[in-house]
């Protein structure tokens, strides 16, 4: 009798009362000893009852779709809130950065200029190998990267600085540095380019330019210049009086004056 094989469809047929007497007896006997079969028969009977109730299935389906849709909306709302928070943080950060960099430009700390200059000194030429071993400074002060701040009071910018006026045109080094252009005291309109060129043979070490405003505050320091000219773009300079210094090996070679006049608009 045990040779009769119970297949999966017997469970269905048992619950639908489609087994004959012999099959039913075999199946019930098997159920008595097999708890897994017993639970499978129970689940099948419960499933039949569940599937019969189409209205409940439909209702559950609708509840599911409603809750999924609302959960989706909630999820979208969460993402939007996160995105808004990130945007706010970025804006606050940007504003803070602008404010702090603005105040930095207005009053650049002298200690930073000094430390930059001392760093430049440390990066100076390797005497044993000559000029080729100069390293370009890895970092420059923020001043060299950022726009000079436009001053609100233009007239104040045109007041010359007495101490620097005395030094304009003076060569403060015995080395015969020969500047070709510009003249030591020039006036240009805002945004014009100034070409600094010099005789190469008169310079033994790379030079760099420092531009100071009429209060003696450096507003721009160029990187080391290895060629014989440098084009100074004044696009970001506000109108006023500036003083330039050509420097080499921490020594000033020449000092000049640059007046940036406002553009006359038609």
């Amino acid at each position: 009798m045990m040779e009769t094989e119970i297949t999966c469809d017997w469970i269905d047929r048992y619950n639908e009362d489609e087994l004959d007497e012999f099959e039913k007896a075999v199946f019930q006997k098997q159920m008595l000893v097999n708890p897994l079969l017993r639970s499978e028969v129970y689940i099948d009977a419960s499933l039949n009852r569940f599937l019969l109730d189409g209205e409940i299935i439909d209702l559950i389906g609708k509840v599911h779709s409603v809750s999924h849709r609302n959960a989706g909306d909630r999820g979208r709302m969460t993402y939007l809130l996160i995105a808004a928070s990130v945007l706010c943080l970025v804006m606050i950060g940007g504003l803070f950065y602008l404010l702090t960099s603005g105040s930095y430009e207005r009053n650049p700390p002298a200690i930073q200029i000094e430390s930059h200059l001392s760093r430049r000194k440390a990066d100076g030429p390797d005497k044993s190998t000559g000029l080729e071993k100069f390293r370009k400074p890895e970092t420059y002060t923020a001043m060299s990267r950022q726009k000079p701040r436009h001053l609100s009071l233009a007239a104040k910018n045109f007041q010359p600085m007495e101490e620097f006026e005395l030094l304009v045109g003076s060569v403060t080094r015995s080395n015969p540095f020969k500047l070709i252009s510009p003249k030591v005291n020039i006036s240009i309109t805002a945004g014009a380019e100034v070409l600094f060129s010099w005789q190469c043979c008169t310079v033994a070490e790379p030079i760099y330019l420092t531009i100071l405003n009429n209060r003696g505050i450096p507003v721009l320091e160029t990187p080391f210049v290895y060629s014989c000219y440098y084009r100074l773009n004044t696009k970001w300079f506000s109108e006023g009086v500036y003083y330039w210094k050509i420097m080499s090996d921490e020594e000033m070679l020449l000092m000049g004056k640059l007046t940036i006049l406002p553009c006359i608009k038609n």
Partner: peptide
């Protein structure tokens, strides 16, 4: 989650 219905003796 359905394990509680297995080995059902009801």
């Amino acid at each position: 989650e359905c394990q509680q219905y297995l080995y059902y003796d009801g």
